[in-house]
């Protein structure tokens, strides 16, 4: 449900970067979303379709890369990949774990359109 405001935050940040680079538009944005980030990638995709309506970003491609979780268990010492949204050791069910990956919610790269002038340089 909060994916809409996440999408809006991403668009605000991307817009600031677009203005900074004086780019006419943004071709694509690459995002990383960890399975423990609390953000559902399908809901986020849906949120973008709503949030971009009538904006400069109507044709921007939002590539969402899912980052699998990885947890190091302090009880059994194994590193496993939880299959759900909750950090738990898949080997011994312990919750005494260290999260090594999966909390990511990041803007990785932005592909900005170049105006015609700079193409000719």
């Amino acid at each position: 449900m909060h994916e809409l405001s996440i999408a809006q935050s991403i668009m605000e940040r991307v817009e600031a970067i677009r203005v900074e680079h004086e780019a006419p538009g943004i071709a694509s944005v690459q995002l990383q979303v960890g399975t423990l980030s609390g953000v559902d990638p399908y809901a986020l995709e849906m949120a973008f379709t709503v949030a971009v309506e009538g904006t400069l970003y109507a044709d921007t491609r939002w590539d969402i890369q899912r980052i699998p979780a990885s947890v190091d268990c302090r009880s059994c010492g194994k590193t496993t990949t939880p299959d759900g949204p909750f950090p738990i050791c898949m080997s011994c069910d312990s919750t005494d774990i260290e999260i090594a990956a999966g909390r990511e919610l990041m803007i990785e790269t932005i592909e900005v359109d170049r105006d015609e002038e700079s193409n000719n340089v």
Binding site: I17, H21, A23, A27, M106, I107, E108, T109, I110, E111, V112, D113, R114, N119
Partner: peptide, 8 residues
Amino acid sequence: DSLVLSVR
């Protein structure tokens, strides 16, 4: 026709 910026 585009420029890729690393944002991270």
